[in-house]
Structures are given as C-alpha cells and as structure tokens.
Write a protein that binds this DNA or RNA. Structure first.
Length: 187
DNA sequence: ACCCGAATAT
DNA sequence: TATATTCGGG
C-alpha cells in the first residue's frame, strides 16, 4: 500500500487490513529495497490475521468487480486496463518506477506563502504581468521551486477567472484556499 | 538553454 | 480540490 498520508492510524489500518507493507510517498529507494521482507513476513504468518473486507466496509462496487476480474485493485489496474477501457495513453502512463523515486515532496501553499506570493505579484504589476521566475525571486522563500510557484500561479489565475465569470468580481471571497482541508483565504 | 503556460497526471 | 509534471512553443 502506498500513500502520502503518514499518520500512524492510517498506516496501522492499512497493514491491519492486509497490506504487506505501507510505503509513504515520496517513496525512498531504501523502502523499496525492503518490500520483499514484508511480503515474506506476511507469507510466514499464513495471512493469519487477514480477513477479507465485507460489504460493510468502505469498498465500492467498482473495486470489487475489478478485483474479481483478476486485478489486485483499481489502483494497480495499470496501463493495460486503461487501454482496454479506451482511456488515453500518454507518456505519463508509461513512466516507470524510477521517476517515482525522484518525485518531489508536496509543497502546500498556506496563507502565509500565498501572501508573499501576492506581494510579489503586485510588485510585478499584476497577475497578468507576473511570471513564475520573478515571483519566486521576490518571494524570497527557501525550499520552493519555480515549478511550485508556476503551479500556484496557474491555480490562482483559474480561480480569478471563475470569479469574474460568476459575478463575485471585486468582492472578497473566502472560498479561495482550502489549506489542509480548512477553508480560509482572504485577499 | 531557459522559461512559459495549458494540459494532464498524481 | 491542490499540487506536480509534462509538453509544445517562444
């Protein structure tokens, strides 16, 4: 099992419900090297404490059907499954595990970062004139990349477009910015 | 070689 | 929904 969620309760639940191991993303090469040990451990215990999920558990019908069709899970459906369903085949789908190991860790733009972002944007003469590289320089924040800024810039522009298209133009909207699942924003 | 921004993946 | 990565082009 693999997730960015590293909370012990979630990890415990995953392993308790049958996962051989729980990899926290971004996955470290070291963790990958040890996967087999966990599989062996599971096998030695003969799946002792493993119990199939019942219909009462949070597994949707699609996942069940997929599993019965021979797939381990929808998450592991993979390229072949997508092709069968007529899904788009892009190069992203063809990436191998190598790139996964190089995955950057997540950077969340909290209110604080957003304010610095806005300050920089204003210095550059507005949202239309501001550009990632310069915004990053003016923000003067260590640990974030121009890509991080570019992504935020794109999101923010889309947000502004939505606003103007639905009449909230000009007024403060508290809906922009959900940080850690809590609504905030201002501006 | 570097940077953008739209599109797409995670 | 939020963020990361890709991709085509300037």
């Amino acid at each position: 099992m693999m997730s960015v969620d590293d909370s012990s309760s979630v990890v415990t639940k995953g392993v308790t419900h049958g996962a051989c191991d729980y990899l926290i993303k971004p996955v470290r090469l070291e963790a990958l090297r040890n996967i087999w040990q966990h599989v062996v451990k599971r096998r030695k215990n003969e799946w002792k404490d493993f119990e199939p999920l019942t219909s009462a558990d949070d597994v949707d019908q699609h996942q069940k059907a997929t599993a019965e069709a021979g797939y381990t899970s929808s998450a592991n459906e993979g390229i072949i499954g997508k092709m069968k369903r007529g899904g788009k085949m892009t190069r992203m789908n063809l990436r191998n595990e190598t790139s996964l190991l190089l995955q950057k860790s997540l950077v969340l733009f909290g209110l604080k970062l957003h304010r610095q972002f806005m300050a920089a944007v204003n210095q550059l003469g507005g949202i239309d004139k501001a550009v990632p590289k310069k915004i990053l320089e003016l923000m003067n924040v260590a640990g974030i990349s121009t890509e991080n800024v570019a992504s935020h810039l794109q999101k923010y522009r889309l947000y502004l477009k939505r606003l103007s298209g639905s009449q909230h133009l000009g007024s403060m909207d508290p809906s922009f910015y959900k940080y850690n699942y809590q609504v905030r924003l201002f501006m």
